[in-house]
Structures are given as structure tokens and as C-alpha cells.
Design a protein around this nucleic acid. Sequence first.
DNA 1: CTCTTATTCAACCAAGAGGTTGATTTCGAC
DNA 2: GTCGAAATCAACCTCTTGGTTGAATAAGAG
Lengths: 116, 116
Amino acid sequence: MADQLSRVFSALADPTRRDIVARLTDGDANVSELASSYDVSLQAISKHLKVLEDAGLVSRSRDAQRRPVHLEAEVFDLMTKWIERYRQQAEERYRRLDQLLAETDATRSTEQRGAS
Amino acid sequence: MADQLSRVFSALADPTRRDIVARLTDGDANVSELASSYDVSLQAISKHLKVLEDAGLVSRSRDAQRRPVHLEAEVFDLMTKWIERYRQQAEERYRRLDQLLAETDATRSTEQRGAS
DNA sequence: CTCTTATTCAACCAAGAGGTTGATTTCGAC
DNA sequence: GTCGAAATCAACCTCTTGGTTGAATAAGAG
């Protein structure tokens, strides 16, 4: 479908799916266990889990008829890396801007330059 | 529409919009400047910017006919907080599990307890 | 085997997303 | 005032999404 980062962000754009993720930090759970918390059908939750699985956010094993859902924490790093990169770049830019503004007066008298 | 967290995740689920965000870390840009980088219409980019603005990821000021787009870094914190909370909880859970497994032998002889 | 439980598959539907093109607004330049 | 550039609005189209219900599959329990 799309790249993984898109799938991860897209998966977490839904409140029900974010709630499922939150729930899974307390431990693995079956589809029906998860479904009991929401007022949508079991099939709807099954679909949500497929989306989370495709994004790599959860994995599913097998225990008789049950399919325990397990949270995969590693994928969060992918997002964190993306976010932090741009957040830091943005902050860096503000920092440089502040510095530039602060230097405006000072530099005028001494007249020194340095390429970024 | 939806809660802000949903809007933010949803906004970043699109590769073009993520690219726009990346582009904006280099500095503000007009709609047409941004649009020139992509092979979709200006109107499509205008729509993308509206989505980013509704999510609080960018803001737009006015400079004659131009509408400079500015990246708002603060909103990233909202996501980071959400992600970190569950990532840490998940890691915490693994840590406790490891500890539990490690204690299984040791505790058997000394028999001491402590509620978490 | 048959029954029951857990889950998925399939078909369908309404609403939303992302794209298009054409018209309209907003402002500076002439 | 008129022209042109920048951007948005509006109508439309197609594909996706999140939901439904009903049937099918998988696997333990009787």
C-alpha cells in the first residue's frame, strides 16, 4: 500500500486504534477481549487490528482459537525519529534566528562574519 | 472534526504533507513556492496546507497576495508525549517481565514480597 | 462427529480524502 | 480603473475508510 511511516501515522489517526494501543500496554489481549470495551462489532475491531498489524504496531500469535494481540514497541521509534528530526530542525532554526537578531547590533560595530 | 491528536496523526499520514513539513524547516514558503515541488495542482497543495493548519502544524500570515506558511513546532510535542507515554509503558512492562523471570528462582528461597 | 467459541472473510453502504478543473477573491503594479 | 499574480472556493469524480450483517473457517469440548 503505502510506506510504513504513512501506515503508522494513519493507523494512529483513529482514536479507537490509539485506545487499543494504550490498552495493550497493560498486556496482550484477544480480539473479543478488546472488542468488549467498544460499542462496535467484533468484526470492526478485527479490521482495526489488521490495520495496526499492517503498520507493524502489533503482532498476533495463536493460542487455540484465540489470537492474542501483542504490542510491538519498536515501531514507535520510527515515528519518534521522524518527529524529532523535524522538531529539532525547527528549533534549531529559531535558535539561529534569535542569534541573528541578537547579533544584529553587536556585529554592526565589529563587522565580523561566519558562514553558517 | 476530530480531536487534535487525531488530526495531527492524520495530517502526517500523507507523504506529500510530511514532505511539506520537512521543507518548511528550511524556512517559511508561499503556496506557489511549495506547489512547484510537486506534480499536483496548486489547489491540491492549498488543500494539504489547510489540513496541516487545522492540525495546528502550520500557521499562515499575510504578505500582499502571498500567504507565507510557517511551521509550528509546538504541536510535535503533543505527539511526542503520546508516543513516549506508551512506548515507555511498553518498555516498562518488558522490564517488569524480565525482572519477574529473573526473580522466580531467587524469590523461591527467601520468600519476600513488595506490592508494585 | 457435533456443538460452541473465536476469528476472519465477503459484500455492501455512507462518508471522507485527495485529486481535478473552472470561477472568484484579493492585492499590488501599471 | 485595469491587468496579472496568488490563493481560495465550488463542484465534481474516484478510491479509501470505518462501519454494518451474514457466511465461512479453525479448533477445543462434549
